[in-house]
Every structure is written in structure tokens, then in C-alpha cells.
């Protein structure tokens, strides 16, 4: 109990931004991403001293909660009105803006689970087996959903048609 608060705060300070980026990719909305992350953190907090790998635990909660939100429609059934509420970035990458917006729009057209599969495979860099474990689905499902999602991204946003990732052990 005595060192638990600092441990929790230190963890959030160190790893929170990484988890927030995943949450943002999952939700496509800054407010929802923060809400999703804070919900996962609040869920983990009472068990904090008993969680062996907080980041793995939180990542799993993030992804399963994200999918569950869509289905259960508990508190956040809304579709964000503001599709482009991200802060403007002026780092000389303006030529990438249309491309990024196209990908963002394409991502929003995916189902929550297709987004989750893509983020796990191509952002979190997990293997198909690892992604399947996080989502609680079969490896075959991850493969099929990755295929469908990439096909849609190719059609809508012109992502690389030959993109593939080597399997890791």
C-alpha cells in the first residue's frame, strides 16, 4: 500500500503516452482515447499490486474494452462529430497531410475489430498469435481480418499492396 501510489503514477507517466497512442489509433478520437485509457487504468488500479505485467494487462483491457464499447453501447455510443480534432502539426510534413487524412478516413471505415487487428499487428508489432491472444480469437480470424482490413485500406487509401510482416516466434 505504501509504495503503490508512486508506482502507479510513475507507470502512467512512463508508459501512459504509449498506451494513449494505441487508444487513439483504436478510437480515432482524442477524447475517446483518453476516456478509454482512463477507464482501463481505473479498472487496473484496485488490482495494481497483483498485476505482474501492467502494460500487457492494460493493453489487453484497452483492446477488449474498445471492442466491447461498440457492442455494448454502454456509455459511449456516440459517433464523434469532429473527425479531425487532432492538433495541427507544422513540421514540414504538409505534403503528407492528404495521405494521412485518407488513411485516417479509411481506418474509420473499418470495424472495431479490424482496427484492433491492424493496430496490434502493424503498430504494436505483435505476431498473429500474440494478437489472437490479446483479442481472444483464433489465429485464423486474425489472418482473415487482417486481409480484409488491408484490402479495404488499399482500396480507400492506397497503402502498400505488398505489405506483409514476417512471423515471429
Amino acid at each position: 500500500m505504501s509504495d503503490e501510489p508512486s508506482t502507479f503514477e510513475e507507470f502512467v507517466a512512463a508508459r501512459g503516452p504509449t498506451l494513449a497512442r494505441s487508444a487513439y489509433l483504436l478510437t480515432g478520437d482524442r477524447h475517446l482515447a483518453e476516456d478509454l485509457l482512463q477507464s482501463a487504468l481505473a479498472r487496473a488500479l484496485p488490482r495494481w499490486s497483483r498485476i505482474e505485467d501492467p502494460e500487457a494487462y492494460l493493453r489487453r483491457v484497452l483492446f477488449t474494452e474498445h471492442v466491447s464499447w461498440w457492442r455494448r453501447r454502454r456509455r459511449l455510443t456516440e459517433v464523434p462529430l469532429d473527425d479531425h480534432d487532432a492538433p495541427a502539426r507544422g513540421d514540414g510534413a504538409d505534403e503528407d497531410v492528404p495521405r494521412r487524412l485518407a488513411v485516417e478516413a479509411a481506418l474509420r471505415s473499418l470495424t472495431p475489430k479490424q482496427r484492433a487487428v491492424l493496430v496490434l499487428r502493424f503498430y504494436e508489432d505483435l505476431s498473429e498469435a500474440e494478437a489472437a491472444t490479446v483479442l481472444g480469437v483464433s489465429v485464423g480470424t486474425v489472418k482473415s481480418q487482417t486481409h480484409v482490413a488491408l484490402k479495404r485500406l488499399r482500396a480507400l487509401a492506397g497503402v502498400h499492396p505488398d505489405l506483409s510482416l514476417p512471423e515471429r516466434n
Binding site: R21, S22, R30, R89, D96, V103, F122, Y123, L153, H160
Partner: peptide
């Protein structure tokens, strides 16, 4: 474009 690069780019706005 590579979807991995684009995801990383988008994630910067988190």
C-alpha cells in the same frame, strides 16, 4: 504507403 508508417504518423496526434 506503408500502413505501419502511417499508423505511427497518426499516433503522434494522440
Amino acid at each position: 504507403t506503408d500502413v505501419r508508417d502511417m499508423l505511427q504518423d497518426i499516433a503522434e496526434a494522440a
